[in-house]
Amino acid sequence: MEKRPEFQRILIKLSGEALMGDQGFGIKPEMINFVAGEVAKVHNLGVQVSMVVGGGNIFRGVAGSSAGMDRAAADNMGMLATVINSLALSDALEKKGVPTRVQSALSMDQVAEPFIRLKAVRHLEKGRAVIFAAGTGNPYFTTDTAAVLRAQEINAQILFKATKVDGVYDKDPVLHEDAAFIPEISYMHVLERQLHVMDMTAISLAMDNNLPLQVFDLHREDNILAAVCGQGVGTRIYSSEE
């Protein structure tokens, strides 16, 4: 049966931890190759794909600041870690035949383009995947917030958060055996119940701009493809008024 995409322009948020596989640190070649293959399947349907990658597999700013480092310095290091991941993902996608551009919120012209909104949109229209690196370019903002911001700026129809869990639960499923899976939930309920889907700033920004979010397991084959084709993978977060 032919796959028909439900969305024409999307943004995929990948956690840095997803790229390290079972290593505990760094980038696992097999994992980044798998991720690139999953993204390529969606790109091959003609969907305009953009991505934001975290940096937690290399350096996490909050962890650095909790260890006594200045928070702004630690976050700057975290942003540089996302550039490393973005370049690795770009290379893997190019090897899969997906033309890719990396745009960085921090100026580093020798390795990435500067983030220019209209240029990013033009890349997407020409069939190139765009990876937004270095978060928002500012400390104190997570890559979740950067993903929502970039999705809004390029007018993406939905933000997919591909992570290590299969969706949203009412409590941590790792710690609680009786945790209940939630297939659909409103932004406000996520905020009120303080569910750790994304940070509160990201959820609030998505709610203010009515950007639908979908959370699902990255590690299951064809999950990104299924989500793009509207097959109800994971948890959908949207306005309760819809």
Score class of each variant (00 low, 15 high):
L195K: 08
L213N: 01
P173W: 14
A120K: 00
T82E: 12
D178V: 02
A81T: 03
K126M: 07
A151Y: 04
S15I: 01
V197T: 06
V168T: 05
V148M: 15
M1E: 08
L93V: 12
E125F: 07
A162L: 00
S86Q: 04
N33D: 13
G54C: 09
T201V: 11
V233L: 12
T201D: 09
V190I: 15
Q214K: 12
R71H: 13
I84T: 02
D178A: 03
G64M: 09
V39M: 14
A112Q: 01
G55C: 07
H219I: 01
V121L: 12
S239I: 05
V49L: 14
D70T: 09
G16S: 03
F59T: 00
L118T: 00
D22V: 04
G167H: 09
S66G: 09
L14M: 02
P139T: 13
P99A: 14
Q214E: 14
A120M: 01
S107N: 11
D222G: 05
L87I: 15
I224Q: 05
D199W: 04
D222S: 15
G54W: 05
H123A: 12
G61D: 05
H43F: 13
R71D: 09
V168D: 08
A36L: 12
A72F: 06
E38L: 01
L89E: 10
V42W: 04
F115T: 05
M207E: 09
A112P: 00
N44Y: 11
T145W: 06
I154D: 07
T136L: 05
A18I: 04
Y140A: 13
R71Y: 10
V49Q: 15
V98A: 11
Q214M: 12
H189R: 04
I116F: 00
T143C: 15
A36Q: 12
